Amino acid sequence: MVGRKIAEDERRRAILDAAGAQAGEVGLAALTVRQVAARAHVSPGLVFFHFGSRAELLTALLDDLLTRTLDAAEPVELRGRPAWTRLSSMIRTELLGLPEQRAQVELLFDFSFSSRDPAHRAAVSRALARYQAAFRPVCAEVVAGSTLEGAALAATVVALLQGAAIQVIHAPDTFDPEALLASLAELGPQPRG
């Protein structure tokens, strides 16, 4: 009896998912095509058919990872609201998503700090620049009329989120996004009375 034939894009997705899960367990340096194939229930030849080489598999994994993790966007439903409200909402969305994305964030850090491939490092740098750029417009509105610059505030926001990501990886039981958000609220514009 022959099983259901899986479409190539589904098989490719399954291999990428297996590569991500396996890399999360053993790290990028120890990841092998044979491990990925076993985890995806395919032959190593099929992994090579879809990705060509281990290096190309890692590049595809990184591209997929960057697409799914560094994707901040200003909420459309809050347009027209005060800039601080919109920025706070963006930060809240990112912070609350960290625990669920812990494995992907950890793998992203592995690519950032362990990969010796300059193309991988460059891809992470470009993705982080786009991520920071997503915050710049609303940050520019938040600091309008002050001596701060929107780009500097966006860099600060991303640094906060990166620090929170590290905390989710190394001390998930102490990660409290609501406490971070409460601290930010205290730093934000205060109502005039």
Rank of each mutant, 00 (worst) to 15 (best):
T85Q: 11
S146G: 09
A72K: 06
Q104P: 09
G20F: 00
C139E: 06
E74N: 05
H120T: 04
R86G: 01
E141C: 02
Q35T: 03
P189E: 15
P82E: 01
P82C: 03
A37P: 02
R11N: 04
A165Y: 08
A129N: 10
S146Q: 07
D176K: 07
L28Y: 05
V168T: 08
V124M: 05
L58W: 01
I6A: 09
G45V: 08
G52A: 12
Q22P: 07
L28A: 04
R79G: 10
L181F: 02
L66T: 01
L87R: 00
I15W: 01
E94R: 12
S125N: 10
A37H: 04
A155Y: 00
F51P: 02
A165E: 11
P191F: 07
I6N: 05
H41A: 14
R116D: 13
M90Q: 00
H50T: 02
S112Q: 07
S53F: 06
S114C: 10
G3M: 14
R54H: 14
P118D: 10
A133Q: 15
R68G: 09
W84I: 08
I166A: 15
P172M: 05
D176S: 08
A129D: 09
L31A: 07
G97L: 10
A18W: 04
D9A: 09
S183G: 13
Q190E: 14
Y131C: 10
S146A: 05
T69R: 03
R86D: 02
E94D: 14
E74G: 06
D173K: 11
L66M: 02
A23P: 03
D110H: 04
E178P: 06
A179W: 02
Q190H: 15
L187R: 11
C139Q: 03
R13C: 03
L95K: 00
E94N: 09
Q22Y: 09
S112E: 08
H50P: 07
A122K: 08
E178R: 09
T69E: 05
L98T: 07
A179F: 07
H120Q: 05
A72T: 10
V42Y: 07
A152D: 12
G188K: 04
L78T: 04
L78V: 10
A23Q: 05
A179V: 04
E25K: 13
S125V: 13
A179Q: 10
V76H: 13
L28D: 01
V157H: 06
G3N: 14
L28W: 01
F113R: 10
G193F: 15
I166M: 15
A14Y: 02
E106S: 13
A164W: 05
A171F: 13
A151G: 12
P172C: 04
R86N: 03
R13W: 07
F49W: 11
L180M: 11
G24A: 05
